[in-house]
């Protein structure tokens, strides 16, 4: 894999690492933090990008595509993650689907909406109770290693994986 360059944004690194791992289907429900990443993915013909109405649909689409031989990832916000728990517990986990999730973390480190702050606190307990591998990326320098490692591990171990984008990565001034 090509080395990380200092001129690359975190979004550009994510795009490069997904391509290097042949993750070519993206299904997302948008949020602000993901906006630039989504623009990059939609502009790149390597990716098939589907924007469904709900995050649960994205879980289903990525699951079906995986079984059909195409690797995919679901992008969502913390509040969207809270809506997919049943799909994780009854589809991704028991069927051993390497469901990649990239979750932009809202509700902490400067949140202004009480609902976002409260739902955010449910995310890690849910991931832990389902036994789903997860890691919050906090530093620009962690992006390539974490995304590449979690993608490879998900497919090697037939297990879902949640890559959490901390405000420390996405909101803090460089």
């Amino acid at each position: 894999m090509a080395g990380e360059t200092t001129t690359e944004t975190w979004e550009e690194t994510v795009v490069r690492v997904l391509k290097a791992n042949d993750v070519s289907l993206v299904s997302y429900v948008p949020d602000n933090v993901l906006a630039r990443l989504i623009r990059l993915l939609e502009a790149d013909p390597f990716f098939t990008v589907i924007a469904p109405a709900r995050e649960e649909e994205a879980v289903g689409i990525v699951t079906g595509a995986y079984m059909g031989g195409k690797r995919g990832i679901a992008l969502m916000q913390t509040s969207g993650f809270a809506t997919i728990v049943n799909a994780l517990a009854s589809l991704a986990c028991p069927f051993q689907i390497p469901l990649l999730m990239m979750i932009s973390e809202r509700g902490t480190l400067g949140e202004f909406q009480q609902g976002q702050a409260i739902v955010c606190r449910t995310m890690r307990p849910v991931l832990q109770s389902l036994g789903i591998e997860h890691f919050a990326i906090q530093e620009r320098s962690q992006v390539e290693f974490v995304v590449d490692g979690m993608v490879r591990q998900a497919f090697a171990t037939q297990a879902p994986a949640a890559m959490i984008l901390s405000p420390l990565l996405t909101k803090r001034a460089a």
């Binding site: 289907l25 098939t48 289903g60 079906g64 595509a65 995986y66 059909g68 031989g69 195409k70 589809l91």
Partner: peptide
């Protein structure tokens, strides 16, 4: 339907 859509896109 979403699962079938994923299969349809992949194949």
């Amino acid at each position: 339907t979403p699962i079938a859509l994923g299969v349809a896109i992949a194949q």
